[in-house]
Design a binder for these strands. Structure first.
Length: 260
DNA sequence: ATGGTTGCGAAGCAA
């Protein structure tokens, strides 16, 4: 059994106590994190080592930053997408854990349709698709985990009508995600939960969490051989609440997939 | 909800 999880922690500096609390309670074998907002030199590798996890991190400080921690091995870490599309910085990190090629990705937000940032988001997604074709085989055990900043379809948002014309739901970015899936990956949570209304992110503002105004934008994409090993996929909604120890939550919560 | 909250860092930007 391998437990694989992904979490946009919205600053690991601010979130480390909650992350440690969650790791101790849920015992993931592999945890991908996004938005660490740390430089590599500031990554708390000692704190994870004390819990039995090796770690790899790709960050340059204030923005973005991605990490993988693993207690089932962590080999051949490779940071970045290997192209000028990395200009937005520190959004992809790969490593091999328990024979799985794991990718921790933080897709650019896009901000608004028509903006330069939106075009960069589409470019970045195309580059990720090319990276997979260059570095990986869909016949191997491949996991692409992270904050995609895309709700795959209308089941994944609280109110499709209210979001019409907005980023995260627009047709070009959904198509870009579909092209990544068509390389040979499955949105494994969706197979276990065909129903809508299950989200991984809620805006901090306006009480969105309690009003159910969220989106499912954090995904675990698995290659077919790996997807065949999945026995469950859950979103840990409780981790979006203040913790039993009083630690404050990220605006995202954790997605967990268990593999045989 | 053209509002609202959080994080970083010390004002304003990003999400």
């Amino acid at each position: 059994m391998v437990r694989l999880a992904t979490w946009n922690v919205n600053s690991l500096g601010a979130r480390l106590p909650l992350v440690i609390e969650w790791v101790e309670a849920n015992a993931p074998d592999i945890l991908c994190m996004q938005e660490t907002k740390l430089a590599d030199s500031a990554f708390p590798s000692d704190a994870f080592a004390e819990l039995g996890y090796a770690s790899a991190h790709h960050g340059d400080g204030r923005w973005n930053g991605v990490a993988i921690v693993s207690r089932v091995g962590l080999e051949e870490p490779l940071a970045g997408l290997g192209s000028e599309v990395d200009a937005q910085g520190c959004r992809m990190l790969a490593a091999t854990c328990a024979g799985i090629r794991v990718h921790s990705v933080y897709v650019p937000n896009g901000r608004s349709l028509g903006s330069e940032h939106y075009r960069s988001k589409l470019d970045w997604l195309a580059r990720l698709r090319a990276y997979l074709a260059e570095h990986d085989s869909p016949d191997d055990a491949v996991a692409v985990c992270g904050d995609f900043n895309i709700a795959p379809d209308d089941r994944d948002v609280w109110d499709p009508a209210a979001l019409a014309g907005a980023t995260h739901v627009s047709e070009p970015e959904r198509r870009a995600l579909q092209e990544i899936l068509e390389w040979g990956l499955e949105d494994t949570f969706r197979r276990f939960h065909p129903d809508g209304g299950i989200f991984s992110w809620w805006d901090y503002r306006t009480g969105s969490f309690h009003k159910g105004m969220g989106m499912r934008i954090d995904l675990v994409l698995l290659s077919k051989p790996l997807a065949a090993r999945a026995v469950s996929a859950v979103i840990d909604r409780d981790a979006r609440k203040k913790s039993p120890k009083g630690n404050k939550p990220s605006d995202h919560t954790v997605v967990v997939v268990d593999l045989d």
